[in-house]
Simulated assay, not measured.
Amino acid sequence: MPPKNQAAWIPAKKTRPLKVGDAPYTPPGPGQIVVKNGAVGINPFDWVLQYVGPMMAPHLVYPMVLGTDVAGTVVEVGPGVTRFRVGDRVTGSSVSIAKESGQAAEGGFQLYTVMREYMVAPTPAHVTDEQAAVLGLGLGTAAYGLFHKDYLALDMPQVPPLRNPRSPGKHPRAVIVTGGASSVGSCAVQLAASAGYEVLSTSSPKNFAYVKGLGASHVFDYNSKTLVADLVRALEGRELAGAFTIGAGADQVCAAVMKERLSKTPKLPTRKFIALAGGSGRDPKSLEGFMGTIRLMGGMMSMMGKNAVNTMLTGIEVKFVLIRGLVDPESCVSHIYTDFLGPAMAEGQFVPAPEPQVVGRGLDKINEALELQKKGVSAKKIVVSLP
């Protein structure tokens, strides 16, 4: 007899709050596993979909189970699965919101979630489910913007990290990752460092030590009036592989840095490309903060085109990180899960970050967690434990 499942459903478009109720237990298909969730992470996208789901994900069929960041224990494996066995602890990204899925069984906000094998990594014994649940969508967004061929196309991360520079006589390679204390930024700093790049980041001063602990060589105050000059100075003698930006106006700052380098040190290699993962430092409940959250998830909203147009006038390309092919087993995100994340966490080279802020235990806590996430957190990620 299958286990009894429950879920926090979004019953219809633009509906709040989520409704906790019974859900079918769905066995895994080929290449899938079923995970009994021990904890789930909360992303801005989860509550944004409640407001503008039909605009951002018109393919969704309601009632639906949202939620992407999960960690727990494998209870069943499908045909062809070789990476996991029943009893293994894992962390990963569920894909109910993906156009190629659209299945409630693959949503994270429930007790038992069907997961794609290649979107899951083993959780080492020293990492709790609550800690592991902070990854998911943040990890995927960072990986896509850093490594996908349509964005920065950096070398993939390895265990141990690649040498920098890889060849004698070449300039050390550097990349700018703003917003290093955010959920996405915490992953991006670590991934870029593991790929063999020197990472220059930004945060508030209270988070300088935290971001450096993730692997950034320099961290600057994002509100500093000398930020552009500070970044240009820190990049002296280095190849700039581009920028991955999070935070209001961060793309403009990085464009100014690139323009300054091209003017003063034209012989130093500078890639004129900014992967815009977005975000806003303002009140997330305000219109600008709300749109910044949508931009964080790759929303291609016309009212947000102004920054991209302005920076394009300098000859610098700015491109929103819009994840496509989330369920592609050969995507850069999938390779992070299958080739890198498990060994890197086991070795302590990659740590789940930021620290979880656990709201409580049970599916009925997810609505409270969504409300807390709207208010914004610093160097934390909202997490709900599950029984």
Rank of each mutant, 00 (worst) to 15 (best):
E100P: 04
K149H: 15
I97E: 11
E198W: 05
G179M: 10
S203F: 02
L154R: 08
V177T: 04
H148I: 08
D129E: 13
A209Y: 03
P122K: 15
L154K: 01
L162K: 15
M119G: 09
I97H: 10
L139T: 00
A174F: 14
V199N: 01
N207F: 04
A174Q: 09
S96H: 04
A105W: 01
E106L: 00
A193K: 15
P205H: 04
L200W: 05
P160Q: 06
S101V: 11
P160K: 07
R173D: 09
V177R: 12
L200M: 12
V175M: 06
P122E: 11
M156Q: 03
R166F: 11
P205Q: 01
T113L: 09
T202N: 05
V120N: 08
G179V: 06
R116H: 13
K149G: 09
L191H: 04
L137C: 14
K170E: 14
L162E: 01
T202A: 01
T202G: 05
A174E: 04
P122Y: 02
E100Y: 06
Q103M: 14
L154M: 06
Y144S: 00
M115A: 05
G108K: 12
V127Y: 14
C187Y: 01
V120L: 01
A181W: 10
S96R: 01
M156R: 02
A193N: 14
Q103H: 14
V177K: 11
M156A: 12
Y151G: 07
P161D: 11
G215H: 02
A192M: 04
S182N: 08
K206G: 00
A193Q: 13
S167N: 15
N207C: 07
V177H: 07
H148Q: 15
